[in-house]
Simulated assay, not measured.
Amino acid sequence: MVEEHKRIDFLVEELNSDDWKVREDAAELLGEVGEPDAVQPLINALEDEDWHVREAAALSLGIFEDEKSVEPLIRLMDDEKANVRYGAAISLSMIGDERAVDVLQKATEDENSVVRKVAIVALKEVKNRI
């Protein structure tokens, strides 16, 4: 358990790296480790300047199914990058919170066809869970 916390602390620290790739990898690994202490740092990473990091953080948050991630992920559905909107939609479907219905409905008309397809599936998943 202590070893796990050291790993989490290290990865959270890596979210502050000057290198976007290090931050992206840290966000991905925090999701893989699955420790609930990673949720807030991942939510904070949704505001990273680099879209790769925002996408990785968004995708990792779905693993936790933590409802405090829902509102930040909903806001991310307006991101300029389709990859980030895709990641947010995937995680919103994994969390299955009814607050996501409106934004996923809107995303079914996204300019990006992949985001549209994911939003359709995510919307069905959320509706099945509520």
Rank of each mutant, 00 (worst) to 15 (best):
L104C: 08
M94K: 09
E125K: 15
V39A: 05
K106A: 10
R129C: 03
R54I: 03
D110E: 08
N128C: 08
A107H: 02
D9H: 12
E98K: 06
V39L: 11
N83S: 13
V101Q: 03
A26F: 09
L104P: 12
I130R: 09
Q105L: 11
E35K: 07
V118M: 13
N83T: 06
I90N: 03
N128G: 15
D9R: 14
E55N: 15
I8T: 05
S91A: 00
V118F: 05
K6C: 10
S93K: 02
R23V: 00
E35F: 10
E13Q: 15
V22S: 08
D50R: 13
E49Y: 01
D19N: 15
L73Y: 03
D110V: 08
M94H: 03
T108L: 04
K6N: 15
S60Y: 03
V118E: 14
E13P: 13
E49C: 11
G62K: 02
E24G: 01
P36Y: 00
A38C: 12
I130W: 14
I90A: 01
A27K: 04
V115S: 07
V2F: 12
L92G: 01
E67S: 11
E55G: 04
E98M: 02
D66R: 06
V22R: 11
I90D: 00
A57D: 02
L29S: 12
V103H: 01
R116T: 00
V114Y: 08
K127T: 04
K68A: 00
L73P: 14
A56R: 10
A57I: 03
V84L: 09
E71W: 06
L123E: 04
L123M: 12
A119W: 07
A88D: 04
D25Q: 12
K127A: 06
T108E: 02
R129M: 15
V22D: 04
L59K: 14
I74A: 05
R116K: 15
E80R: 08
E13R: 15
S17T: 00
E55C: 11
S113W: 12
D19P: 14
D78Q: 08
A45K: 10
L11A: 08
R116E: 04
V84I: 03
L30N: 06
